[in-house]
């Protein structure tokens, strides 16, 4: 299951046929239509959007994630078939962005699922997204897009981080309940 065993043809094919499932809870979703339609047309590179994670290779996170949505993102990510990649859009996924002090958004997506490419900006322009895909293709070709391997290797650690995030909310909820009780 190592990356090096993967034949060249398969790698080339994988590179030119990135099917994505986009998790559009953030504001970045609005940047996707121009990328898909005739202005930028990402189908040129064989990129297509898919309906379910079972069919997809790339998970596109288009902005901030609350803890509640993170649970779903993890579920979707785990339902995808390896090799799988994650592209995160916007500064929210890097350091919380404008939600840096919010109690229920996650600050660094990389702590919970392995991100292959970050696209900076608030929001990134369509060119940025296109560029990210091209970069991902390059990384796949060079054998550097190994987020899914990282997830497998450090599975315990990722799980621990996820649990911490989920439990944090649970704790808060419990405290809230307690407060209400008082």
């Amino acid at each position: 299951m190592r990356y090096e065993e993967w034949s060249g043809i398969a790698r080339k094919a994988s590179k030119r046929s990135l099917w994505m499932v986009h998790f559009c809870t953030g504001c970045g979703a609005i940047e996707m239509p121009p990328v898909m339609t005739s202005r930028y047309d990402m189908e040129r590179f064989g990129i297509a959007s898919m309906a379910t994670p079972r069919q997809a290779d790339v998970l596109l996170i288009t902005g901030y994630l609350t803890v509640k949505t993170l649970k779903r993102v993890v579920q979707v990510y785990e339902q995808m078939q390896s090799p799988k990649y994650v592209i995160a859009l916007g500064s929210c996924t890097m350091n919380g962005g404008m939600y840096w002090d919010s109690y229920n958004t996650i600050k660094r997506l990389d702590k919970y699922i392995p991100v292959d490419i970050y696209v900076a900006g608030c929001m990134p322009r369509p060119e940025g997204i296109m560029n990210a895909f091209l970069k991902l293709m390059k990384l796949i070709d060079e054998g550097k897009a190994r987020g899914w391997e990282r997830y497998k290797k450090y599975y315990e650690r990722y799980k621990k981080n996820q649990e911490m995030a989920f439990n944090f909310v649970k704790k808060e909820e419990k405290e809230e309940e307690k407060n209400e009780g008082d």
Partner: peptide, 25 residues
């Protein structure tokens, strides 16, 4: 649609990619 569109051999690439997936459920 007034787009460029994928290359004409895209079908082969897609199938090759799907068949070379590492995990299947």
């Amino acid at each position: 649609h007034n787009r460029v569109g994928p290359p004409f051999y895209q079908g082969f690439i897609d199938v090759a990619k799907l068949l070379s997936k590492k995990t299947n459920i």
